[in-house]
Design a protein around this nucleic acid. Structure first.
Lengths: 145, 145
DNA sequence: GCGTATTTTGTCATATTTTGGCATAATAGG
DNA sequence: CCTATTATGCCAAAATATGACAAAATACGC
């Protein structure tokens, strides 16, 4: 499972090393060295390739001309890029995604069980400020846990 | 069961020894040498790995694009780090958590039955001052005991 | 209270991870 | 086809985590 937060430097060319714990999990649990990066809310969302493909299968079952399907696809699939992890444990974050989220110097990796997110420091800090409050609200929903 | 309070020194690198009573309980009752540390209110919350994984399983069943799920995950999972107890009974507290709660010199371990918390001395002392009053209020609510 | 056993803490050496730099390869644009 | 730009592979330095050992502090039994 992907968990926790890690802050890493990103090179001028968009290279960044994936946290080693994430890499281990990727290898052991998902048997892959590839990630699919896409956009979601204010950050880059990252799926193990194998998980992403499951998601695609589910999306294929949605009614293909329904407005919601198309809009969901344009957003999630239309921004998806496959990235392989190199020998040093790094990936290249595509420019389009980097520019969209203004990820320049450092980036925060945030584990979310079966996937993780990459945030710009600035946006993450902004989101953290309200995160406990949001958590409090979401807690109501998840009372039975 | 985890009970009571213990104060321990934390090294510059973030290493701290887990109270031996907690270690014994972890081994005997939960059959693990690993903890998961996360944030909750004003301290680091610590679960035996085996208990934590039960929680994760429940979370995995929630709809993954729903707002509440994500906000819950970002807060609880996004701050969760697995820590193994080493040969000397110590764990490494990740920098991110240490910085969040300003745990620098000494830390207080507080047992809460199936889990425990790690506090900075300062915050713990602050919380102690109001804790009897809070207890008085909570007493009204906890009727069925 | 005293001696022994256990627990906690400090230090150092080693291993792993992350980062930066550079040379080469691939690609796109003119 | 040549050039400019971007991507990739490789190496090494820096930063960080881990393991081992030993000293200090504390708890325990007598």
């Amino acid at each position: 499972m992907f968990r926790g937060q890690f802050i890493h430097k990103i090179s001028k060319t968009g290279r960044i090393s994936v946290p080693s714990k994430f890499r281990d999990n990727l290898q052991k649990k998902y048997k892959t060295r590839s990630l699919v990066l896409s956009t979601f809310e204010n950050s880059i969302i990252c799926y193990p390739l194998t998980e992403w493909e499951k998601l695609e299968k589910k999306i294929l079952d949605l009614p293909q001309f329904k407005r919601e399907t198309i809009e969901f696809e344009r957003y999630l699939i239309g921004n998806a890029h496959e990235c392989e992890i190199d020998g040093e444990g790094r990936i290249m974050v595509p420019n389009i995604l980097r520019n969209t989220f203004k990820i320049n110097d450092s980036a925060i990796f945030v584990g979310l069980l079966s996937r993780f997110e990459i945030w710009s420091e600035k946006d993450w800090n902004k989101s953290v400020k309200t995160s406990f409050k949001k958590f409090q609200n979401s807690r109501e929903v998840i009372n039975e846990l």
